[in-house]
């Protein structure tokens, strides 16, 4: 079971308290954008995922805790979390991830 640091509670808690919510930083297009979108664009938004082997930006929900969503960088080979951060924050750069790993 994973141990996950919730950036809202600022505490590390067992995975059982959390629900995984898929790849992070997928922004729902606004109405004006939607009107312009092709089927292929919709497909990308709905179905296409990075599914990378390595550092993955993903969303988690502290369902049985503070009930807040947050984002995380987790390595999908080791399952180790490098960092968690609030949803309003930008996706960390590769450099930031590297620095966080060395911390």
């Amino acid at each position: 079971m994973l141990l996950i640091h919730c950036p809202h509670c600022n505490e590390e808690r067992p995975e059982l308290e959390f629900a995984y919510a898929g790849e992070a930083h997928i922004v729902r297009p606004n109405e004006a954008e939607q009107a312009e979108m092709s089927d292929a664009d919709w497909s990308k938004f709905m179905f296409i995922r990075d599914n990378i082997r390595g550092d993955h930006a993903e969303r988690w929900w502290h369902a049985h805790g503070c009930n807040m969503f947050f984002n995380a960088i987790r390595n999908t080979v080791t399952d180790k979390f490098t960092m968690t951060y609030k949803v309003c924050q930008k996706r960390p750069t590769e450099h930031q991830i590297k620095v966080a790993k060395n911390d």
Binding site: M1, L2, E15, A19, E58, T76, V77, T78, D79
Partner: peptide
């Protein structure tokens, strides 16, 4: 498991 992974192992729970 609930999360994506390539670890080839899952959780005990």
């Amino acid at each position: 498991d609930q999360y994506t992974s390539y670890s080839q192992r899952g959780a005990l729970h």
